[in-house]
């Protein structure tokens, strides 16, 4: 029960925060670009004339664009912003003197980042639907005949979410240990760009920033990216937890 209260408390902190705005803007950004493109070009997902599922094609098209850079960058920023909120407001000391175990604090804060990422995917999917439905109504005057593939959308979102977990974990670790916001964002950016440059290397999977990107392009090492992604997540989170518990100064 204590964890739920701590989670509620952590979630309240995200209200009107930069991470919340980033989540909203980032989630709708690519769908909005496509919506404008469809409306300017007088096109819709029906008139693009695909043979397969129009929704699946539309979703994958938007997702591919997002996975290449925007999603990992958004996750880097959001994870860092949420964790750094305590440093920015000088509130670590307040948080660490509340009757919560350090484990509860660690998990609750981590879960908020995870929930924020899920919220990001939710906004993105809503954006996908809007950018699909609205042009159909305006351009074709009708809705697509194909019913919405709910399960497909959930599955695909979940798969990308799993690939994001190592980035969340590494950014959480760095943000917990550095007061300066520029450090986690800088390391994240360098890690991401470095991974992009070395994306053809067969051992690129050692980078926690690689998986979302590898899923968007070709996978040079033919590894099971979901399994390796989860291994990264577990190891990095374990290290992060240990460092958090053994910190000499809390706040």
């Amino acid at each position: 029960m204590k964890l739920i209260y701590s989670l509620q408390s952590e979630w309240l902190k995200t209200k009107r925060s930069a991470a919340s705005w980033l989540c909203l803007i980032g989630g709708f950004f690519i769908p909005l670009i496509y919506l404008l493109y469809f409306l300017i070009k007088h096109k819709s997902i029906i008139s693009t004339g695909n043979d397969g599922s129009v929704w699946e094609m539309h979703f994958q098209m938007l997702l591919r664009n997002m996975k290449a850079f925007l999603l990992p960058m958004g996750v880097i920023m959001a994870s860092s912003l949420i964790t750094q909120m305590e440093y920015k407001n000088n509130t670590w000391k307040q948080l660490c003197t509340t009757p919560q175990s350090m484990t509860t604090i660690f998990i609750a804060k981590f879960m908020v980042i995870v929930l924020m990422t899920i919220k990001f995917f939710l906004f993105f999917t809503i954006g996908v639907l809007i950018s699909g439905y609205v042009p159909c109504l305006i351009v074709n005057g009708e809705l697509p005949k194909e019913s919405l593939p709910y399960m497909y959308l959930i599955e695909e979102n979940f798969k990308v979410f799993v690939l994001c977990l190592p980035i969340i974990a590494i950014q959480y670790l760095i943000s917990l240990n550095f007061k300066n916001f520029l450090v986690p964002v800088g390391i994240g950016l360098v890690g991401l760009i470095g991974t992009m440059i070395g994306s053809s290397w067969e051992k690129i999977f050692i980078s926690p920033y690689a998986f979302v990107f590898l899923d968007a392009i070709s996978n040079p090492s033919n590894i099971h990216i979901y399994k390796v992604s989860l291994v990264h997540f577990v190891i990095i989170t374990g290290i992060s937890y240990w460092l958090f518990l053994t910190k000499k100064e809390k706040g």
Binding site: K15, R16, K93
Partner: peptide, 9 residues
């Protein structure tokens, strides 16, 4: 020391 408050709230 200094007040611990969330400035955006």
């Amino acid at each position: 020391e200094s007040p611990s408050l969330y400035g955006h709230l």
